[in-house]
Design a protein around this nucleic acid. Structure first.
Length: 495
DNA sequence: GTTGAGCGTT
C-alpha cells in the first residue's frame, strides 16, 4: 500500500510526497504542514477535469480507486488576503485582480477579515472527567497551535467539571474546530464560543452556508460534497427529507461560500443555483444580509421584508445564531451556528437584485404565513428570482400580502406544504418558532414533534447530519435527553 | 468514590 502521495502547489510544480495515514486518509494537518493554508486537494480525473478530494473531519479521503500515482494539487481558500498564508504571488495568476471593482471588494474583504479573524477562547463541553489539560491540549493540537488549554476543576476536590477552554493561534483552526464535534477520550464533546464571548466578533462573519436550489432528487449528499469540494473544504451538506428540491452546503471558508453565490452549477446534469442561505435569526432581517458579492453586487437587503421584529422578540434570543436550538446535547449540531449562519457585516442592502426578473420578494411580501404553499414552489420561486432563501422571514406580518402565485408555477402535486403560520396565529408563539425558514430548514423534520404541539410537519425518520458519519453520539454514558421534548429529535443541522 | 447540562476563582 502506498504510504505517500504526491502533492504540488500547482500544476507543473514539483510535487512533494506527503504521508498518508494507515487508514488511507490524508490528514489535512499533514497537508497544511507542507502547504500552509491549503484547505483541500484536487486532481485531474480521467476526463482531465479537475476533481476535488473529499474531506471529512479533517481527513482527506482517497478517491474511489485509491490515491494512485496522481499528482494532487493543493486547494487554497480563494483570495487570501495579503499577509496571510501564502502570498498571492506564490499562488500564481489565479487571484490577480484586474479592476477596481475587485480591488474594492478586496479591500472590503480584507477589512472584514481583520474583523473576523480574531480568535476567542472556546469552551469545550462534555469532557470526560478524567481528561487532563494536557490531554485536552494534545487533542486539539492536531487542529493547529493551541495557545491555551484548561480544564475547569472543582477547587477543593480537583475534580474536573467536565468542561474546559481552549484557544487557538489561528482563526482557521478555530473555525475548523467549531465546525465539528470531537471525540475526546471516548466522549463526544462540543466546542462552542462561550457565552461570555458570544457577540464579540462572531456576528461580524459571513455565512459559510449556501443554499443550493433546483436540486434534483438524485443528487445526493455525496454528490454535493464531491462537487463543491473542488472550491474549498465542505464542512457540511444537508438535504432536507423528504425531497424539497434544495439543499445546503457549508464551506469552511465563508468567502468561498460567498464566491459561489449567484452562480449556476451543473451537478448530475442538473443545473442547480447557488445563493445565500438565510441566517436563522431575525438579526438578518433587521440588519440586512451579506455584503454583496463581487459578481452579484447588491443583493437586496431585508428592508423590504416588513416588520421583521414581528413575532420574534418573544422567542428570546439566547445569544448566537440558531440559538434557539443550541441546547440539546446529544443531538446537537456541531457549532455551525458559529460558523455557517452568521451575519454579514452591516449589509448594504436595499438594492434590487440586478438579475431579479421576477417579482422582488421584498415587494411581494414574501410571507411564510402561507396559504398552503408548496415549499418546492416557494423555493423555486425565490430561487428563480435569484434570491434563494434570503430572508429569515420571521413571523411575518399579516399585513403583507401574499403573492406567490405571481412568482412562478407552483407544482401542486407535492402537497406537503409548510405549516400554516397564519393559522398558528403567532407571532412568536408557536412552539416551533413560526418561521417559514425554520420550517424550510428543518429538513428531516421536527422529530421533536413527539413532544407534541408542533405545528411543523413531521416526516418520519430523522437522519444524522452529514459529516457525522462516525456516528452521532449515542454513547451509553451520555444521556440523550430522553423525551426531551420538541426540538431534540429534529435534525441537528440547520435549525 | 457518584454526575453530564452548562459557561471561565485569572
Amino acid at each position: 500500500m502506498s504510504c505517500f502521495i504526491q502533492v504540488a502547489d500547482e500544476e507543473n510544480e514539483e510535487p512533494i510526497e506527503i504521508p498518508v495515514e494507515e487508514d488511507g486518509t490524508l490528514l489535512l494537518s499533514t497537508l497544511a504542514a507542507q502547504f500552509p493554508g491549503a484547505c483541500g486537494l484536487k486532481y485531474r480525473s480521467e476526463t482531465r477535469s479537475l476533481r476535488g478530494v473529499r474531506l471529512l473531519d479533517g481527513k482527506l479521503r482517497p478517491p474511489e480507486n485509491g490515491w494512485g500515482n496522481a499528482v494532487y494539487l493543493c486547494v487554497f481558500p480563494k483570495e487570501t488576503p495579503e499577509g496571510e498564508g501564502r502570498s498571492a504571488a506564490s499562488r500564481g495568476s489565479e487571484n490577480k485582480r484586474k479592476n477596481d471593482d475587485q480591488l474594492e471588494a478586496s479591500l472590503a474583504k480584507t477589512k472584514r477579515l481583520e474583523l473576523k479573524q480574531k480568535c476567542s477562547d472556546l469552551i469545550v463541553l462534555g469532557l470526560p472527567w478524567k481528561t487532563t489539560e494536557q490531554e485536552l491540549r494534545e487533542y486539539f493540537e492536531s487542529f493547529g497551535e493551541v495557545l491555551m488549554a484548561q480544564v475547569k476543576k472543582d477547587p477543593k476536590s480537583g475534580q474536573s467539571k467536565g468542561f474546559g477552554f481552549i484557544r487557538f493561534g489561528t482563526f482557521e483552526s478555530q473555525m475548523r474546530v467549531l465546525s465539528q464535534r470531537h471525540m475526546i477520550d471516548g466522549r463526544w464533546c462540543d466546542v462552542k464560543i462561550p457565552n461570555s464571548r458570544s457577540g464579540e466578533g462572531q456576528q461580524n462573519q459571513v455565512p459559510c452556508k449556501v443554499f443550493v436550489g433546483r436540486c434534483s432528487d438524485d443528487i445526493t449528499q455525496e454528490d454535493l460534497r464531491d462537487y463543491f469540494s473542488q472550491f474549498g473544504e465542505v464542512t457540511d451538506v444537508f438535504i432536507p427529507k423528504p425531497f424539497r428540491a434544495f439543499s445546503f452546503v457549508t464551506f469552511l471558508d465563508p468567502d468561498i461560500a460567498q464566491s459561489l453565490c449567484g452562480e449556476d452549477h451543473i451537478i448530475k446534469n442538473t443545473s442547480v443555483h447557488v445563493s445565500n442561505a438565510a441566517p436563522k435569526t431575525d438579526h438578518a432581517a433587521r440588519h440586512g444580509f451579506g455584503r454583496g458579492h463581487p459578481r452579484d453586487a447588491g443583493r437586496p437587503g431585508m428592508g423590504g421584508y416588513g416588520p421583521a421584529q414581528h413575532g420574534y422578540g418573544s422567542q428570546g434570543m439566547n445569544g448566537g445564531w440558531g440559538g434557539q436550538h443550541q441546547s440539546g446535547r446529544g443531538t446537537e449540531m456541531p457549532n455551525l451556528a458559529a460558523l455557517g449562519t452568521s451575519l454579514g457585516i452591516g449589509g448594504q442592502g436595499g438594492h434590487q437584485h440586478p438579475n431579479s426578473q421576477g417579482p422582488n420578494p421584498a415587494q411581494m411580501g414574501v410571507g411564510p404565513m402561507n396559504l398552503g404553499l408548496n415549499p418546492l414552489a416557494v423555493a423555486a420561486a425565490l430561487n428563480q428570482a435569484g434570491w434563494g432563501l434570503l430572508s429569515n422571514l420571521p413571523g411575518q406580518s399579516p399585513d403583507t400580502p401574499m403573492a406567490y402565485s405571481q412568482a412562478g408555477p407552483a407544482p401542486a402535486s407535492q402537497a406537503q406544504g409548510p405549516p400554516s403560520m397564519a393559522a398558528s396565529g403567532q407571532p412568536g408563539g408557536g412552539p416551533a418558532g413560526g418561521s417559514f425558514l425554520n420550517w424550510m430548514n428543518q429538513g428531516a423534520g421536527d422529530g421533536g414533534g413527539g413532544g407534541g404541539g408542533s405545528a411543523m410537519p413531521q416526516p418520519p425518520g430523522s437522519q444524522p447530519p452529514a459529516g457525522a458519519a462516525a456516528g452521532w453520539p449515542q454513547r451509553s454514558d451520555q444521556k440523550q435527553s430522553a423525551g426531551a421534548g420538541p426540538g431534540y429529535g429534529r435534525n441537528p443541522d440547520y435549525v
